[in-house]
Design a binder for these strands. Sequence first.
DNA 1: CATGGGATTGACT
DNA 2: GTCAATCCCATGC
Length: 190
Amino acid sequence: MSALTPAVYDRPVLDVAEALIGCVLSYGGCAGAIVEAEAYHQTEPGSHAYVGLRPRTRNLFGPPGTAYVYRSYGIHACLNAVAEPEGTGAAVLIRALEPIEGIDAMRARRGLERVESLCSGPGKLTQALGIWLELDGTDLSRGPIVISEPPARWRDVSLVAGPRIGLTKAVELPWRFCAAGSRFLSRRAG
DNA sequence: CATGGGATTGACT
DNA sequence: GTCAATCCCATGC
């Protein structure tokens, strides 16, 4: 399994979002296949980058392949992969994983048994893998969080695009991508 | 300086 | 279906 290079992220954010479905996210002995992701770009108001570079969103404008981890609703951490050239605010929000490795550690951190519930949401998967805000700004091609190329069974998965979840602005853009038929999504694809 | 809202979740009716 | 938890910081007076 080889890590995605920065060049993979240095492309239009919609292309990166599609490319990440089926890739494997690993951290601290846990791993899962990405089954759901959303694209965000500075040119549309759903993005944290829309208002311009701020201290909190600094890493969202960093080099392609950077991790952008932010606090959501005061409680949760959400993980993004930064895309497009440095200086452009664009990123892919990782929304759900199909657990592959370290499932018992995920269960312990989540306090749940059901595999389908371990990583089926952006705040859930960071809790399951133990990813927190101090990993903001780290390099996804070098670690400690790594995203690797899809295993054989994930090549050529069918994707379903639909509107992004939970937004109050730019609700209509179909920038959410899901692995078709997956049981590990945060919500059903549509 | 005070206020408010958010790329969510889980518990409850 | 509703709602509170809880933090950063942007915004406005």
